[in-house]
Each structure stands twice: as structure tokens, then as C-alpha cells.
């Protein structure tokens, strides 16, 4: 059981690293938001799921699932709010506004 947890955590770490690389490489705010969504959706999912499995199936498992559910409900809202603020204040994607 703990090996399954560790495997899941390693997969999650891979996605977290990919998200960070994307944060560094991608050209503008809108594209970087995609990198953040990789991190949030997949990286956090696999790491937290791995930790939950590693903990075993007791109340701690359920609590970690609650945190996961919160991330899944709230982080898209945050990403959307940020990107909408960028859009409304006049930024447009595609040209790579790396001043």
C-alpha cells in the first residue's frame, strides 16, 4: 500500500516540476495560467492522493480528500479571476508581452 502511495507522490512531483518549468518558459500571463492549471489539477491531485493512500484508509484519508476537493473547487475560481482581471485591464494573448 505504501509503495502505491509513493508511486502516486512521484507522479505528482513530476507534474509539479512540469508546471514550474511552464511557469518559467511560457510567454504571457494567459499561457502561464495553463501551467498553473497543470500544477493545480494534476500535481496536487497525485501528491495528495498519494499521501492519502500512504496514510491508509481512516479519517485522515477523508480529510486529505476534503482538502483535495477544496483545491478542485477553489483554484479554478482563482485562475479565472486572475485571468479575467488581466483581460479586462487590456492585456491580450499571443504577442508575448515579456517587455
Amino acid at each position: 500500500m505504501s509503495w502505491l502511495g509513493i508511486a502516486l507522490i512521484v507522479i505528482g512531483l513530476f507534474f509539479l516540476v512540469v508546471g514550474s518549468i511552464g511557469m518559467l518558459r511560457l510567454p504571457d500571463v494567459f499561457s502561464r495560467a495553463h501551467a498553473l492549471s497543470v500544477t493545480d489539477s494534476l500535481g496536487a491531485l497525485f501528491v495528495l492522493l498519494g499521501l492519502a493512500v500512504y496514510e491508509g484508509f481512516n479519517t485522515n484519508f477523508l480529510r486529505i480528500i476534503v482538502v483535495l476537493g477544496l483545491i478542485y473547487l477553489l483554484n479554478p475560481v482563482i485562475a479565472h479571476a486572475t485571468v479575467r482581471a488581466a483581460y479586462r485591464s487590456g492585456l491580450r494573448p499571443g504577442k508575448g508581452d515579456d517587455q
Binding site: 508546471g19 514550474s20 511557469m23 500571463v29 502561464r32 495560467a33 498553473l36 500544477t39 483554484n75 482563482i78 485562475a79 486572475t82 485571468v83 482581471a85 488581466a86 492585456l91 508581452d97
Partner: peptide, 11 residues
């Protein structure tokens, strides 16, 4: 831009 900073903070 300031939005990049916000995204970084969220990360």
C-alpha cells in the same frame, strides 16, 4: 505584469 505576480503567488 502584476498578474504574473499573482499567478506566482497562487502557485
Amino acid at each position: 505584469t502584476a498578474f504574473d505576480r499573482v499567478l506566482g503567488l497562487n502557485g
